[in-house]
Simulated scan of single mutants.
Amino acid sequence: MNAKAPTLKDIAEEVGVTPMTVSKALRGMPGVKASTRAKVLAVAERLNYRVNVQASSLKSGRSGIIRIMVNEYRLPFYAQLIDALSDEVRRNGLTPFLQKTGYSAESAAEAMRSPYFSGSMFDGTIAHASGVTEAGILKSGNPTVLLDDCAANPAVSTVNWPNEMGARAGVQHLIDRGCRNIGIVTVCPYMDVEDLLRDHVSNDPVRLRGARSALIDNGLPYDPEHVIRVTGLNEPQGIDAAHRLADTHAGFDGYLCMNDSLALGLIRGFADRGVRVPDDVRVIGFDGIVAGAYSVPTLSTVSVDLDQLAQIAVGQLLRQINDPDGDWRPTATTVGFALIARESTR
């Protein structure tokens, strides 16, 4: 006959604390001394204590799991975003669950309406994924915070990148470095550039508006021909763009790329054609991925404060979870950034 499984009360009695303190210590929550946490973990290990997730969920009505939805895992920026969000979720004593949509609206919609991937399995969702509609979120009834939704009047709280101000700063940096004919590399494969400027579906139009404003404010020319359109966000698209620009002698002396992967691709593509960065052209990216520090030349970038983003997003989500009947009006918060000047613009 199996021995009775140890409980929180058993651990609490042996350590000399309350069951609530044991629960906080096991979940890594704040408010527990390091020495007490160490004793709790040691006793739990010796007693072979295991959390009964099903019973805990039934009792509290919560799973302790936060879903993080993103488009992909391989893009370096997403890796850092996931890392920042996961760390912040764990810091609050919860468990992150990752889900990839592959830029698919159908996958995002299925994830939001699935009775398994919503409801009681997750306490809440943080989503930066294409096709996650506000209607689907509201219908799911699951507490949700969106990342970089960019809607003019959001129905769900969102935490946004510094899209317009960051792009303005990136172009201004190129101007300060002597550039006077600046190209803007962005994802715009199927839409006229002027239509893109009026769009509110993604961050690309917002960044493009910021870049255009910086050019106009400095008395420099802007027209749609300054926008270099690519079909994707990864390095291969940047390499292809650089080959086209070099082969057609485009004449730009500086480039703002809408993400760092494109910028790294641009640098490598120019190298293939004998165009030197920063001697012949200067290049700056947007995001602040760690890989940029190790490229040759190292990449200047508009670095988004992902730690701040994670703290705000998780904090907003926990307020919804902890007070489900509260009058939570949608908010739109923009996080900070830092312009990091490296070799690609010097």
Rank of each mutant, 00 (worst) to 15 (best):
L220E: 09
E235L: 08
I228M: 11
V187P: 00
P189T: 15
D217H: 02
C179E: 01
R212V: 13
L174Q: 05
F252A: 13
R276T: 15
V277D: 01
A263K: 02
G166D: 08
T231D: 13
V187Q: 12
A250C: 14
D223I: 09
H173E: 15
L215C: 12
S261H: 03
A242F: 11
T186G: 01
N218L: 04
A152C: 05
V145F: 10
L220V: 14
A242S: 00
F252P: 15
V277C: 00
L147R: 02
L245E: 09
R229C: 07
V227N: 01
G170M: 01
A211N: 04
M191H: 13
G274I: 13
R244V: 06
N259W: 06
S213R: 06
N160K: 08
S140W: 10
N234A: 01
S213Q: 14
I175E: 02
T133P: 01
H173A: 12
P224Y: 00
G141R: 09
K139F: 04
S213A: 12
D204T: 09
E194Q: 14
V201F: 04
E194V: 15
D240G: 10
D149V: 03
D217W: 08
N142H: 10
R168Y: 03
H249C: 12
P154C: 11
L146F: 04
G178W: 00
H226V: 12
A242C: 04
R207G: 06
H226P: 06
P236V: 10
A167L: 03
N203S: 05
A135P: 07
D192S: 01
T133F: 05
A135N: 09
C150S: 05
I175Q: 08
